[in-house]
Design a protein around this nucleic acid. Structure first.
Length: 151
DNA sequence: GCCAACGTTGGC
DNA sequence: GCCAACGTTGGC
């Protein structure tokens, strides 16, 4: 089993939106390395930290779980979507999404500031590869984050 | 809103 | 296949 951290911009889709909907398709991933991970490595049942990016206080805010394996992202075929890709066809889809189920909203979100300040997290992709939106998290780091976030 | 980092595109 | 130009991400 692999542990993950998925980024989302809360103005677009927040942990509160996921809580309300119960589950969602994680659409709009348009980066090849992230796509490859979704397609080849993300598995149903994997736990996912939900991270709010590009906002006042970037932080790990909740917990989800993969509830659907990779499938073509339907927005790539929609000319009206900002995720439209004219080079993608239903016969040869370029982009995939996975489905994420809501699990938990953390009582104490762990901020990026706190993560950067803790040597335990120094080698996280969040620190070293900050622009990748589908990140792998080592199990012991994942557990430490969840523990801190539950207070 | 700025801008550094870095991924993608396309001419050659 | 190199690399300059360009676009996007995301912290600050």
């Amino acid at each position: 089993m692999q542990h993950w951290l998925f980024k989302t911009e809360p103005e677009t889709y927040s942990i509160a939106d996921l809580e309300r909907e119960g589950r969602c398709g994680w659409e709009g991933i348009r980066n090849y390395q992230a796509r490859n991970r979704l397609r080849d490595e993300v598995a149903v049942g994997d736990p996912v930290l939900i991270y709010h990016s590009n906002c006042a206080e970037p932080a790990v805010v909740g917990l989800g779980e993969i509830c659907g394996a990779a499938r073509p992202d339907p927005f790539q075929f929609d000319p009206d979507s900002k995720y439209h890709d004219p080079k993608s066809t239903p016969e040869q889809p370029r982009w995939v999404l996975v489905d994420v189920a809501y699990r938990e909203t953390f009582a104490k979100p762990l901020t990026l500031r706190e993560i950067k300040a803790d040597p335990l997290f120094a080698d996280m992709e969040l620190v070293s590869r900050s622009r990748l939106s589908i990140q792998k998290v080592a199990p012991e780091q994942f557990d430490a984050i969840v523990r801190q976030c539950r207070g």
